[in-house]
Design a protein around this nucleic acid. Sequence first.
DNA 1: CGCTCCCTTGACGACTTTCAATGATCGTGG
DNA 2: CCACGATCATTGAAAGTCGTCAAGGGAGCG
Lengths: 246, 246
Amino acid sequence: MAIAELLKETVASEKTQSLPQHGRCHACAFKPRCLPAALDGEALTAFEEIVTRQARLLKAGQVLVRQGERMCDVYAVRVGSLKAVDNSTAGEGRVMSFHFPGSIIGLANLEYKEWTQTVVALEDTALCRIPVTALSAAVQHQLIRLISQSLQREYARHLLLANKGSAVKVATFLLEIGANRELRNLVAARFTLPMPQFDVANYLGMRNESFSRGFTALKHRGLVERRSNQIHLLDIPALRELQTSP
Amino acid sequence: MAIAELLKETVASEKTQSLPQHGRCHACAFKPRCLPAALDGEALTAFEEIVTRQARLLKAGQVLVRQGERMCDVYAVRVGSLKAVDNSTAGEGRVMSFHFPGSIIGLANLEYKEWTQTVVALEDTALCRIPVTALSAAVQHQLIRLISQSLQREYARHLLLANKGSAVKVATFLLEIGANRELRNLVAARFTLPMPQFDVANYLGMRNESFSRGFTALKHRGLVERRSNQIHLLDIPALRELQTSP
DNA sequence: CGCTCCCTTGACGACTTTCAATGATCGTGG
DNA sequence: CCACGATCATTGAAAGTCGTCAAGGGAGCG
């Protein structure tokens, strides 16, 4: 498959250190570590047996699931990235979350049996389809940890949305992306944003223009650099400091 | 116990319709339906066996758990109410959630083994202590539904924090309280807020003064009434309409 | 009665949004 | 290979909202 080949290259070229060796991931043909980071050991094995070969591939812009559809599966992201958009209110929708390799899509919808968000691929993306019926016994404990984590993350986002100015929001977002990449053994300080800027602004609860102003503020302080969607974090400690004090 | 007696009265007097009869709740001496609403049938029974007699009583203002403490248990609220406050940033802390009878406290902390929020009783409150070690097999499935629900709620709050003006935030909050009371078979349109106003304002990501202005805006339109902390929703449909359009 | 705590209201300043125009980047087709 | 158009990002100025500071009012409690 062309997409898989392409993405294989991406993963290989961006790798910076040798990956942990806790068993090869059979569900994912080319590299270990493409399943949720929180899963390991026997849980990982159990997980793999469930999802083996249940792959789904999307090109940039394609829709994974649409708000209102019946939900029968959750999806684990292997490579690529997606956004989850809420269209329930007027206007052009609000980006509720981004999903990168390792995250599971649909954790907020297990209770209501239909999708409450529309999920769209931001680039060529590969996923594992996981029937909710498969979420029993063996993996439930892991699942609980994952949802709990997500909930924690959302609380952090509340703090961000409520208090902070635009520059701080931008800085926090970029640091989050970096931290996420570190978990995936990629360089934290230099990366390409897969989504357009206005998606990020939307996610952070502000207008495109405000994001732009916030970003140039950081740029003028020499904390970040950018060409197109190529981001370079020049002074991560200073960015971290921004989050707490002013 | 004095508190329990007092609260028994409260529950009895506010009850509006006969409660569903799916088995008596042994863990809760006076009424059924004081355990999480999402639990029922055999799951409820299993739950009760675990938490039987593990009660904990708090007076208004008392701290249930403190941010940073080791977490060994989660808590189910039986009667009363609490707030969960994050103190990690500067300032006087941000209210992350309120907890009413039926909700479980600690769902976001299962992954990190310590409390990330300080939880304080808003009034005299009774809880069930539930060791996390007890969260196995029998109740895990229910637990997943509960956390998933919470996550969904947090997404809804994002929509609120990001888009809306102060009046809409106030309206949404009041409607949420009403909806929650409906689930507990209480009148939705008339209630007493157990928390001071500035806690609500904080929860909604705005200043006390902004909340006040938002509320009086609703009052002038004849949608709500208030004496002290006694709230009366005069026109619930109109309040709902506010949330969507302007 | 007077204290404290909390809510309300006003005025001003800071920040974000809005509207509008310009500029950059990329893909397409000539 | 260049030019064009489309999409997206930047920048400015005006308007609106919220935060801040300050003063006043009201309810509850000793």
